[in-house]
Design a binder for these strands. Structure first.
Lengths: 348, 348
DNA sequence: TTGTAGGCGTTATCAG
DNA sequence: CTGATAACGCCTACAA
């Protein structure tokens, strides 16, 4: 006794066959079923709280109204906001979301791919892992081979074959440097990563190019690198500490891994008596809610997370339904100037 | 051509029947299939990246390894942390999670219930809505009637029939008042809600009782009520503003709806030149990450969100597998003293 | 040691 | 107007 109400139950209650019930409930009656029967069936279905079994429907060729989503970590506001956009756009179109955290791990992403394959999701949205290896594309290929459309979001290469949703990370970093420059900064350091991630490389290149174009000098000592993928671990403190020991090297730091790391630095510096932005300026990336709360409020590059999520879902739905969509959706970023960057020009 | 690899494909490739493949892949061979066949089948399955269709498996009576989860809003750190606990515990046991936001809306929860019914999830975890009405239980009853085990989390009554995971909200609020009292506060106000929510009522009663037991006076004017469910809207500012206009009424405020609201107040007060904790002390609920970042750092009641999520999932799995589990899992809260509450005793 | 048959809930096709 | 029937992919008896 599983309690689920099936077509048969309704058929039995209505004294008709299951196929008639199916016809009625799917509205596929060109005035072929008597009005009385229709009413009775609808009524019973309502009373019994009938919900079609989408698994059985899928067996008959209908796509499952479920899509898979992998993000590194749902606990991070950046991804949860994005996820909400995805879910909302999905709900509008009747799609539900199976959510998985990859923990920035190839294995996590592999597990997600397997789950998606098993579930026979209608499509998948992937915010990829950092861990290097060609295997990531292998996983995506697997989904593709199985006929599951994939849309990548945030973490993707500017040029690649998968449909993807992103901002122009290169240009955003470029503009960030220009912003710092406009505020009078000349010695601009960067917290970069060792991650094998297109968007991080793009941001770093944007930084390099901007520095070059502005005739500013870069030395290796101004480039700090985050190795671990966790933005709030001891390594964050180490980097913050390292920077604080060389305050003369730079007046401003661009934290390209994102706001969470920038915030971690600010917190660390505060604890150690280093003033932001007087002793050091810092600029983040992503525009996370916390950045507007912390003191000083964080200057950052806003990514329209929610909208990007929505866009990704809409793109995916197009792909699922066989309509062609864009190969690349580029959203506008926006530099939000707050108080974590000192205006050197003004103060002199 | 859907691309999915099925048992048949493997059978064809191996030159055996589908049932043999099924037997082998399910390990149900008491030395009944030849080692060579086994090896061949395993090999082919591997190469073809075969993943069983769990929808088809479910039709055969096996429970879907998918559970449903409704939370008010995944964007809120409290719920995302909880969600992570649920997902992690689920992953350990092979369960995936379909996530839905209710937006604190009965309709949202209804939609979730319908989705869960359609998907035939193996079980559901519900963090209920605020909106009043008996309908919530109707929805849960619907799931139950369909044989879908339900575990409630965070938002539940102390005494009710559903298995549930929570802290002792009454006692936590009671202890919060005692904490404020110990720090020298006597005029203690509260931000309560108008929501029809057991946990909020419990917290409010805990506050009332503690005040009584400590011989402290309560006047209606010390009780502010949040009506909307959104903790960061204009109403939050209105309440903060209202409080700021009557600083003589109270030296401390207990924000029982949660940290997010408390933080909103602090931000508002800062913008308006009111000092926390010198002009007013405030204490939150939940222990959200942001609370440790904001200045002054927020004194609050920690709920073990991640562990509660894990516990809920483990409870649910027991229910799914027919093993009996606890009816109520009560986790320990912990008062975390930071700097948003002034120590009046020390400063005199 | 392996194959065949039936059925899970649904839908589509074809009879009645 | 309505009912059988087959099929989707898988699993389990049972038959060979």
């Amino acid at each position: 006794m599983k309690g689920r109400v099936t077509l048969k139950d309704i058929a039995a209650a209505a004294g008709v066959s299951a196929s008639t019930v199916s016809l009625v409930l799917n509205g596929k009656i060109g005035s072929r079923v008597s009005a009385a029967t229709v009413a009775k069936i609808r009524d019973i279905a309502e009373n019994l709280h009938y919900q079609p079994d989408i698994n059985a429907q899928r067996l008959k060729g209908k796509a499952l109204p479920i899509i898979g989503l992998v993000v590194p970590n749902i606990t991070n506001y950046f991804y949860s906001e994005m996820t909400k956009g995805i879910m909302d756009a999905g709900a509008n179109a009747g799609y539900n979301v199976i959510l998985l955290n990859s923990e920035n791990t190839l294995q996590g992403e592999q597990l997600a791919a397997e789950a998606f394959l098993s579930v026979r999701v209608a499509g998948a949205i992937v915010c990829g892992v950092c861990e290097p290896g060609t295997e990531e594309s292998v996983i995506l290929e697997e989904l593709k081979r199985a006929g599951i459309p994939v849309v990548k979001i945030d973490r993707c290469e500017w040029n690649e074959k998968y449909p993807r949703v992103m901002i122009d990370n290169y240009q955003a970093a470029y503009d960030s440097v220009k912003c710092l420059h406009r505020l009078g900064h000349r010695k601009i350091g960067i917290i970069a990563t060792t991650w094998d991630l297109g968007i991080m490389n793009a941001r770093e290149q944007g930084y390099q190019q901007a520095m070059k174009d502005l005739d500013l000098e870069i030395s290796e000592s101004m480039i700090y690198r985050k190795k671990s993928y966790d933005l709030t671990d001891e390594e964050a403190d180490e980097i913050a500490d390292d920077i604080s020991k060389h305050l003369n090297r730079h007046t401003a730091i661009l934290a390209i891994p994102g706001d969470v790391l920038a915030i971690e630095c600010i917190v660390y510096w505060k604890r150690h008596g280093i003033n932001v932005p007087d002793d050091i300026s810092i600029m983040g990336f992503d525009n996370v809610y916390m950045g507007s709360i912390i003191e000083p409020a964080l200057t950052t590059v806003d990514q329209p997370k929610y909208e990007m999520g929505k866009g990704a879902m809409e793109l995916l739905i197009k792909a699922i339904e066989g309509r062609s969509g864009a190969k690349r959706l580029v959203y506008q970023y926006q530099i939000i100037e707050r108080n974590s960057v000192r205006n050197i020009c003004a103060s002199e």
